[in-house]
Design a protein around this nucleic acid. Structure first.
Lengths: 127, 127
DNA sequence: CTACCTGCAAAAGGTTTGCATAGCC
DNA sequence: GGCTATGCAAACCTTTTGCAGGTAG
């Protein structure tokens, strides 16, 4: 049985209240400001627990640490291949695309969220 | 200036000839059979070099090591969220989706390939 | 009281890097 | 001959884990 923990609540709130997507290290650093005793291990353990409960999304990013996202089924993710920043957008796979994918791959429980890579405005301007 | 290397050629051929998508470790193990002296460092260095030259795709997978793919612009990737296996399928983002994503995220050079997660037949049957 | 959760530190897994030597051009 | 690539091992970064003590129910 799962028990209440202040630290878990803080991890969840940190994600829920953040405008952008955070790495475990960024969450750890933010929480450390209020609670200097919190440990990285606890942050990682609670992140995984929240992901397992379906309250938080983990996003895998090329060459960069994972980021975490408050679960919301109404958006997909675009990732900058230079800086790794994640951008939300409200486009999902439609049924005909999903059906084509399922028939070609035989995958089940296919998400209607998807991931695309591009280059963000910021990184483009720096070049 | 870049020089010819037997090892680089072998890394590239290994990816090109493989039916499925391989991790760096799997590539290393395969090449080791023919050339027991090859080192992990060389495999990783050449993989990155081939990715930079645009000859090979690196795929980032939740909770699993990266996999490598012979570059081909005509397919996208579906990933099993249990075992991490990657499946190709021939569906790309259409222009109206791309335009919607670009206008919402301001990303540029958006790929028309995308990534979706699901559960593969194999993993589904095991449960 | 008894799980479960924490902090800490060590370990694990994947990948990169420094160095001396070998190989391409 | 000069410069790049290699093999090896050590280092690195991110994440997980074992342990002893703390805390919720």
């Amino acid at each position: 049985m799962e028990k209440y923990s202040k630290q878990r609540e803080e991890v969840f709130n940190c994600i829920k209240e953040s405008k952008n997507h955070l790495t475990a290290e960024e969450i750890y650093m933010k929480l450390k400001l209020k609670n200097p005793n919190i440990s990285r291990g606890t942050v990682y353990r609670n992140l995984n627990l929240l992901v397992d409960k379906g309250l938080v999304n983990k996003i895998s990013i090329l060459e960069k640490p994972d980021k975490f996202d408050y679960v919301c089924n109404f958006h997909s993710h675009a990732i900058c291949k230079i800086c790794g920043e994640v951008f939300d957008f409200e486009v999902l796979l439609n049924d005909s695309m999903k059906n084509a994918i399922i028939s070609q791959t035989e995958l089940e429980d296919l998400s209607n969220q998807f991931i695309v890579y591009g280059i963000c405005k910021n990184c483009k301007n720096k070049k």
